[in-house]
């Protein structure tokens, strides 16, 4: 009663006892902290872009070579000469091949977990697939560089002997630590990401659609092909792109696996090379002058933009699907 009727009119400040009893102060603090945290997150991402750009620019200005087209990387001394086409090629091709390998397997696993696995086992099995994402990437690197390398070599030889006339599979400067090997390991690393998202969208297929198909006499596979897959396609596409984004930025596994070619460029998957991320990592101990670091930061900026575009496209596909589903 006192709370309601005893309050002062507008214009006068209420006594402090009332403030604490109604929690107005606490509300302001809590609201402020929450909004502030959101703004800090926005600030962080903006700062990443701004700092990378600010420190890449001086190096880019002093760059005597064409950043986008020249195949050189001389960042010791002055003038600097560096360009990214090799890095771009190795980064993109290794990630694309990884995605091509991982996608069909991931769709198969997601279908298995949502449509085929015994209901009691579906959850633990899904957890096992998720565990693949928990393995640290440096362990993938060790596994790729020291264990499966011996098993992949004969596969490479075979593919080279059959498809060697295609530049992509040429065995001309073949070494063991190849882009191909890195792609296989990257495929394993992005498999759980693609699987998890595909699984989620497959599971959301309306039961009525599925029952409708079955009631028409469809087999399980026909039911999946006519209802689950079409319903899940946009989600699977964005899952694949999120996986691609992850592969583009993977650092240590690629760095441990791929041998460097010392400038000899090849279109072949059976050669080595460096991605944006692995070149930065391989030279991280030698960032001694700001301009030299700037060259690597410029490479990092390109990687940032690349993953940003891929991820943003994936989000757009997801958002459009949401709008469509509602």
């Amino acid at each position: 009663m006192a709370i309601l009727t005893g309050r002062p009119g507008p214009g006068t400040s209420p006594p402090p006892a009332d403030l604490s009893s109604t929690g107005r102060f606490g509300d302001r603090v809590f609201h402020g902290l929450s909004t502030g945290s959101g703004i800090v997150v926005i600030g962080l991402v903006t700062a990443v872009g701004a700092f990378l750009l600010a420190q890449a620019l001086p190096a880019l200005v002093r760059n005597d070579a064409n950043f986008l087209t020249d195949r050189v990387w001389q960042v010791d001394g002055d003038p600097l000469r560096f360009g990214i086409p090799d890095l771009l090629w190795v980064t993109v091709i290794s990630s694309l091949v990884a995605m091509v390998i991982a996608l069909p397997v991931a769709i198969g696993v997601a279908l298995y977990l949502t449509e085929y696995a015994p209901p009691r086992l579906a959850r633990p099995f899904a957890y096992l697939v998720d565990l693949l994402a928990a393995v640290p990437s440096i362990v993938y690197g060790l596994w790729g560089a020291t264990i499966i390398i011996t098993y992949v070599a004969p596969v490479q030889t075979f593919l080279g002997s059959v498809l060697g006339w295609i530049p992509l599979f040429s065995t001309e400067n073949a070494i063991t630590g190849t882009i191909f090997l890195a792609s296989i390991v990257l495929a394993v690393m992005i498999l759980p990401i693609i699987t998890a998202i595909s699984r989620e969208v497959f599971a959301q297929t309306p039961l009525t659609h599925k029952e409708g198909a079955l009631a028409l006499g469809a087999t399980r596979w026909e039911m999946i092909r006519t209802t689950v897959l079409p319903f899940g396609t946009p989600g699977t596409i964005s899952a694949a792109m999120l996986g691609l984004g992850r592969a583009l930025g993977e650092t240590i596994a690629v760095s441990l696996i791929m041998g460097t070619t010392n400038g000899a460029f090849s279109w072949s998957l059976f050669s080595g090379g460096e991605t944006f991320a692995s070149r930065i990592a391989n030279n991280a101990q030698e960032f001694d002058t700001p301009t030299k670091a700037g060259a690597f930061i410029a490479a990092g900026l390109v990687l940032f933009v690349l993953t940003f575009v891929v991820n943003a496209m994936a989000r757009v596909v997801i958002e459009r699907r949401k709008a469509f589903a509602e």
Binding site: M1, I3, L4, T5, R7, P8, G9, S21, T22, G23
Partner: peptide, 20 residues
């Protein structure tokens, strides 16, 4: 109005209203 006091007056706190 609750006992002659308008619950929607500007200086009435909704939190206090819900206590009552």
């Amino acid at each position: 109005d609750l006992n002659g006091r308008n619950l929607y007056d500007r200086d009435v706190d909704p939190v206090a209203v819900r206590r009552t």
